[in-house]
Amino acid sequence: MNSDTDASRRPWIIRNRVSLVTVAAVLAYGVFLQWAFGWPVLVAQFRDIGAGPLSLALVLLVATYVVRTWRIRDYFPAETKGGFRRLLRLTLVHNLLNIMLPMRTGEASFPLLMRTEFGMPLARATAALLVMRLLDLHALLAAAGLGLVIGPDRPVWAWPLWLLFLLAPLPAFGLKRPLFALARKLPERLRHHVEELHRGMPVNGPAFLRAWAATVLNWGVKVVVLAWVLTLMGVHPISASFGGALGGELSSVLPVHAPGGIGTYPAGIVAGGLSFGAAPTAAFLAILGKAAVNAHLLILLSAFVGTGVAMLLAPAVGKR
């Protein structure tokens, strides 16, 4: 009670400092884009692509959020039974906060929202989020590794090494039971928290495989769509578009993340494109830089559109 009162007495600028930093970063980014490219030039590139392809790309990107929602629904079938629309809204709100808040502080919203909406203990939801983020990172790294091993000049051991990495989550999950069995020797108070963490993990092998398959589907669709859009924007060869899409998405799951992905997401696209065969010439870097910015704007637009749709379709988080 006192802590709430003390918090309300803090200066407004202190209480809203994170939001203010985000808004300031977005405004500064808009000014920078006008100086670097000019908004008419960026808008013209979208216009050149056409409403049809852009609409299809947006629909597919928003569909990946539905896949993420299903993954959580399948992860906690009893706790979220009958609440898919509410869970969809929760997923999209969490995604938007995760994008817009700096240094991945938006991740903290997931366990809080799960507790508010479904009464789930924080430790259980946090454990689930950790597993899902590890699966996300693994899927993206496996996709990046696939791009690296494809080619006639790769060493003979490249494919077996990639396959071992691809299958690594399976034996890692197999360690769950013996590790948590050790928790029985802990004091009762600690054992309760460890048991909640245990409940935040897939209950068995088939559940883990479904979570892994949903992860692969989610990121596969997203990377393919982004690579397609980058190709439409003049990024060639196709391997560079693929690498750019991977680079941007990898930047979004790493701890270093600017508000809204400003700077870090386009930089990830440029770095990925160059790593996968883009020509490092001044002329092509200009094309790649402009395409990276517009691909990032498309990702932000899909997040806002998805959240808007979820708000229309589902009741507010925390309300029945």
Rank of each mutant, 00 (worst) to 15 (best):
V23E: 01
P77C: 01
L56R: 03
L113K: 01
A28N: 02
R104A: 05
Q34V: 08
I72V: 15
V59W: 06
V93G: 03
V21C: 02
L113V: 07
R89K: 05
L112E: 06
F110G: 00
E107K: 00
T105P: 00
N98I: 08
V18K: 05
M100C: 09
S19Y: 02
F110I: 14
V66A: 15
R17A: 14
N98A: 06
V93L: 12
M114L: 03
T64C: 06
S55F: 12
F110D: 01
R68E: 14
R73Y: 11
V26H: 00
R71A: 12
L27E: 06
V62T: 14
F46N: 05
L54I: 14
M100L: 11
I72D: 04
V43Q: 04
G83F: 06
K81R: 15
N98L: 03
L113R: 00
T22K: 05
H94G: 15
R73P: 04
M100V: 15
F37H: 13
G38I: 10
L33E: 08
I49N: 04
L61R: 06
Q34E: 15
V59Y: 04
G83Q: 15
V23L: 13
P111E: 01
P40E: 15
R86G: 13
I49Y: 03
R15W: 02
L88M: 14
S55P: 02
G30E: 05
